[in-house]
């Protein structure tokens, strides 16, 4: 059974927000749109976004990590948002595991957004229906597009290719490989939602310089007569004893 998902590599995400606005740009005029903005040119503008990047600090100066954390619907394998829906508007697709909302059935009761522990759902204030990431379902199967374009908008946009997309149930897929090899983890597993999306943690590369690496026979100072070689007139054993 296919479970499509995003795997987000926090090791390379620079928090540029490209995924945020390219998502909005694709989806507002796509099948999940519009994504309405209230007060777009006024005080406290608020709009619908399917994907947001939060930036936060961890640790105390100077041992601070700044983390950029993109967040969208995680397409849970046991999505708590689905059973609470009174109209059946929220559903999980069998064929690919994408969690979707049928706007025609949605009555805007917000049960699902209360049930979602990740805050992934946003109510469209104008249409009064619940909206969220669709994994760009209107792109990924669209055969009128070139094959290379049949990927989520955010994935194609991401300049650091921090967003991997694929089937997490296929052990051979690039996403499964990344989860296996780079320590991919789900968010808040304790909720039992089994999120399909995973995150890859930060990894550090260090260089260890051994002291003896600083001493080399081919030290260029030698060529210029400057390698610490004591002058002949400095004291030696010869000055003290005759043996």
């Amino acid at each position: 059974m296919t479970q499509l998902a995003l795997v987000i590599d926090l090791n390379v995400c620079v928090g540029c927000q490209a995924c945020v606005t390219s998502c909005k740009e694709w989806n507002t005029s796509g099948s999940a749109g519009p994504m309405v903005d209230q007060n777009p040119y006024g005080a406290d503008p608020t709009g619908t976004f399917f994907n947001r990047v939060q930036t936060f600090e961890v640790g105390e100066f100077p041992n601070t990590e700044t983390v950029h954390f993109p967040k969208s619907c995680l397409h849970c394998e046991d999505p708590p948002c689905v059973p609470v829906c009174p109209t059946g508007a929220s559903y999980k697709r069998k064929e690919d595991g994408i969690v979707l909302v049928n706007y025609d059935k949605c009555i805007g009761c917000k049960y699902c957004s209360w049930a979602c522990p990740y805050g992934a759902r946003e109510l469209d204030e104008q249409q009064q229906v619940m909206k969220k990431c669709t994994l760009c379902v209107d792109r990924i199967y669209d055969t009128s597009m070139a094959e290379a374009d049949r990927k989520p908008s955010c994935v194609l946009a991401c300049p650091t290719s921090a967003r991997l997309f694929g089937d997490v149930h296929d052990p051979e897929s690039a996403v499964s490989l990344a989860i296996r090899e780079s320590g991919g983890y789900p968010l808040m597993p304790e909720w039992g939602t089994h999120p399909a999306n995973h995150y890859l943690p930060r990894r550090k590369t260090r260089i260890k310089i051994h002291e003896d690496e600083l001493e080399r026979a081919d030290n260029p100072l030698k060529v210029d007569r400057q390698l610490p070689r004591p002058a002949t007139n400095e004291p030696t054993l010869d000055d003290f004893t005759t043996w």
Binding site: A18, A148, L156
Partner: peptide
């Protein structure tokens, strides 16, 4: 204009785009 994305055949950005570029509309 419905959508702006990075041109995969461009030597500079090779198909990716940033937050600004995606907000050109």
């Amino acid at each position: 204009v419905r959508y702006i994305d990075g041109n995969p055949d461009h030597p500079l950005n090779k198909g990716v785009i940033c937050a600004k570029g995606s907000s050109g509309i």
